[in-house]
Structure formats: C-alpha cells, structure tokens
Amino acid sequence: MNIFRLLGDISHLLAIIILLRKIWMSRSCAGISGKSQLLFGLVYTTRYLDLITSYISLYNSVMKVVFLAASYATIYLMYVKFKATYDHNHDTFRIEFLVVPAVALALLINHDFQVVEILWTFSIYLESVAILPQLFMVSKTGEAESITSHYLFALGVYRGLYLLNWIYRFWAEDHYDLIAIVAGVVQTVLYCDFFYLYITKVLRGKKLQLPA
C-alpha cells in the first residue's frame, strides 16, 4: 500500500458516497445515468467474487464489501425507490456495445483462462468504459449539476491516482499488470475532457454547461 493507492481508494469511496448522498438528500436521481450504475454494479460483482476465494487483507475485504453494498444501494435507489425521478429519456446509451466487446476482449486477452480470472479481466475492461453512458447523458442534456460534476471528478481522480500507484509499484516493487495499466490509461483518458470542463467551470462557481 502506497500513498497514491490509498488516496485513489479514498477518492473512489468519496465518489460513491457523494452520489448516494446526493440521491438520498434530494430524493431524486435526475441527471444520473442508471446504465452507468448498472455497469458499475456488474464491475464490482465480477471483480470482487474473489472475496470468497482469496483473502488479501482486512482493508481489502472491507472495502470490497463497502463498494458492493454502495453500488447495489445506488441501483436500488435509482430503479426502485426513486424510480419516478429517473431521467431515462436521456439515458439512451446502448450498453451492449460496451458489455459485448468487454466479454470478447476478456476471453481473448487475459492472464489465465480460468473463470475467476476471466471475470476479473472482464471487470477491468468494463470499468474502463462504464462511465460512458453517464458522460453521454451529460453531453445529451448539455449540463450537469455541480454535485454530479463532483462525483465524476472524484471518480476520474481515483483511476488517475491508480496510474501513479502503478508507476510507483513498477519502480519500487518491480510489479506491474499490463491489463490493469492499459485499461486504467483508457479509463483516465476518457475523463480528460471532463476534467478540463470541471476545472475551468465548476471550480469557478459556474455550472457545468456544454457549448450549444
């Protein structure tokens, strides 16, 4: 565990809490892509199956349980409790275009052709693109609430910090995992355009609004 990973995990946790809190306090999930949340639910489920098969540390297990629980809670709030506020007309990204290639790629490029390993690989590939329905929704409506922007920023920072973590681990521990690194770079790059808007607009007190 190094400082980059710890800060990355904290940022990840913060993103999830910001989102849950926003939905709970406003009693609404307007502006949030349910499809991205379903994809994240699938990502956590397929990656954290190893909770049963391998123990790494108490920290690791607790965080996994928290991520799973928070993800399912978000999905429940969106699709059951506050279903009426879900903006499905603007959430039109076709997720099969992400899931099918992620399955295919996981079957083709993996560390080992075993069920748990392929599910892990699938979750890494899917996570890298799982935010696309949300970004698509923001681009479709042309705007995002500040709180939604904070959520997206924290979620983007998380994978960015993981990149620093991987650079550190390569240098300090001689450890690297190419699948995670390549997918992590893709994931971080997808947030770059958003980071620019966040810094130039949201941090200056303006609403995130795309040019018409």
């Binding site: 790494i56 690791n60 965080m63 996994k64 993981y162 450890h175 995992d177 995670a180």
Partner: peptide
Amino acid sequence: AVVAFAHDEL
C-alpha cells in the same frame, strides 16, 4: 518479476 495474479488492488 511480474506478479500477474496478485489482484491485491481494488
């Protein structure tokens, strides 16, 4: 050394 299967990250 590459520790490919040590999925010790979240």
